[in-house]
Design a protein around this nucleic acid. Structure first.
Lengths: 334, 334
DNA sequence: GCTTTTGATGCAATCGATTACAATCATACT
DNA sequence: AGTATGATTGTAATCGATTGCATCAAAAGC
């Protein structure tokens, strides 16, 4: 592969000029520029990005870490992010943390190693090395949190109003006449789950149903949804509706409902969260809170790009609109 | 951030020694090593990977391109790949090509730019710059194809036996007494689709049902599955089974079957391909061909790592086993 | 006791770009 | 004509690591 020196030789100029033609074309004279570009084409020259990064300390890469890439919710967020990144001239480094802290930390060191200009993390934990970076750089730390929102972390973020969304969903459930409602949360270590629980409780209180609320916690997986729902059904025959904090858990709950010999929505109604692509094809189609997944992804990249450009952010915490999608899984109370 | 010189100063040694402690610890004396490691810890030194790459021309990164990251089939493959990559000390650069050739080409140039040591592509097209690399390097080209298998490309690959798998699925359909079977393929530009069609046809021929086979082509998406199924149902009332070349298309077909007022499997049986996580939760649960998605991902990385290590591959084309998963969506012919 | 071998470390070149500063030359101005 | 001005281009330092070769001291061999 040709390097800048080869191009300079071929064009009969210095490497400085070649570099200028490629990075600041305006400052070099037309005929020279043409000579150089011809040589570039001739040799199929592509600049070595490592050398460039070394010199400029900019990598044109952003790192995105995610607890589980094969979860369609996250992969949609990532798709949006990837798209926005490419549009802004950044490449995406992907890290699947499996929700494990040590992997999160390992990926975080890539920032210190100057392997990426910034990081977008979709989990709820901020690795310590990044925490230090936040302490050091404050607003200028190239770190953005997606989906979650924890003001105490001090990082920019893009998310929906989880509390309001859960409130919204629960209100609809109560409006349909349900009294005894089971709630299946995600890990409560995640602020997002806690916010949703806050919203759900607020709605219950408003509908004077707060003590007819049973809360079980899952981990967002299909299996945990099934387990939680099974327990709820077994222990609480009066329950007529379940609200799961993810569609995956709702899918698990649905199979648990069937396994228990009940019908949805006739015996037990079901509401999920996320609106992943498959939810509308379940039987019955799932009522759920829709999040603008790709838009969240794009949003995180846009914030990060602003930070990297050194422009002060208008808003450090962007709240995008959610939407309640009503489908057949939510019926009126029996 | 501290650099190698800072560490050298702090430890009272030369940068060469620091470098050795980190890369070839065996050659440096115990006491020196300890001094250096202490300094490293003290300063929280992390080597600058760009400088290292520049010098060694190895990046410890592999690029993975995929037509659509939010498709759970691909995201599972990627998950497996990411895991294997991390285990082998490689980071993953992700490229979502949207199936567009120009994006594939753009990503391919990252190899020329030395931004990645190798590439795994999950599509069926080999960008021209990579084609040239294959011509130049032959077996040693750090390029691996996942899911697809096109011997003419001359690159290593990991996949299932698509023809046999489709044959397998069709045979089961015929064994259940179906005569008129609709087949919904993916894009026929993809060898994988053509292979599956070959297998499906072979089975039909064996069961003397080749002229009761109607083939429609989709593009692997839910919507295209729905469209194709609608057309088949409208034009061919005798049809009692549909075989889709992806679960996504089967999901679309299922909703089309319902929309046409038919029941599955009583009126029309359905078989998919891939066994994505949601297929078993459909109603009825989907009979489908299961692919070892994460294993395919891991396999591609393992092949690539071998190539990068300069070790000759035992097999350049790895065929992994598929499995036919029987669920309720396939019934006996009415 | 003197030479040879071995082990540990340092010196300095190198990877491929970017960019501050210097040099050059043509044009403009007095 | 003589000098100031501005437009181009070149020179060389620099980014932060790695590594072949030289150096030097200690251990081994005779």
């Amino acid at each position: 592969m040709a390097n800048i020196q080869d191009v300079a030789n071929a064009a009969g100029v210095s490497t400085a000029t070649v570099s200028r033609v490629l990075s600041h074309p305006a400052v070099v004279a037309e005929p020279t520029r043409i000579k150089v570009l011809r040589a570039v084409a001739e040799l199929e020259y592509a600049p070595n990005n490592n050398a460039k990064s070394l010199r400029t300390t900019k990598t044109s890469k952003i790192l995105i870490t995610v607890p589980n890439i094969s979860n369609p919710f996250f992969s949609s967020v990532i798709r949006g992010a990837e798209q926005a990144a490419q549009a802004a001239g950044y490449a995406v480094l992907l890290g699947d943390t499996h929700g494990e802290e040590h992997r999160e930390n390992e990926y975080a060191t890539m920032l210190n190693r100057k392997e990426a200009d910034g990081i977008i993390f979709l989990g709820h934990r901020l690795p310590t090395s990044l925490q230090e970076m936040v302490n050091r750089l404050g607003d200028k730390a190239p770190i953005v949190n997606g989906c979650e929102f924890s003001p105490e972390l001090g990082v920019a973020s893009v998310h929906i109003d989880n509390s309001a969304a859960a409130d919204h969903a629960m209100s609809l459930i109560f409006a349909r006449g349900h009294k005894c409602v089971g709630v299946v949360t995600g890990t409560l270590r995640s602020p997002l789950s806690r916010d949703r629980l806050t919203g759900a409780s607020a709605a219950a209180r408003r509908f004077s149903a707060i003590d007819q609320l049973k809360v079980m916690s899952g981990d967002f997986s299909i299996e945990s949804g099934a387990r939680a729902a099974t327990t709820l059904i077994d222990q609480w025959p009066e329950m007529t509706a379940i609200f799961c904090f993810s569609d995956e858990m709702a899918i698990g709950a649905l199979s648990a409902i069937r396994a228990a010999g009940k019908r949805c929505p006739e015996d037990i109604s079901l509401v999920g969260f996320d609106d992943i692509r498959y939810s509308q094809y379940l039987d019955p189609p799932l009522t759920t809170v829709s999040q603008p997944m790709e838009q969240i992804g794009r949003g995180t990249v846009e914030l990060l790009v602003e930070i990297l450009a050194g422009r002060p952010l208008h808003t450090r915490s962007v709240t995008l609109p959610h939407q309640l999608v009503e489908r057949a899984s939510l019926g009126t109370a029996p």
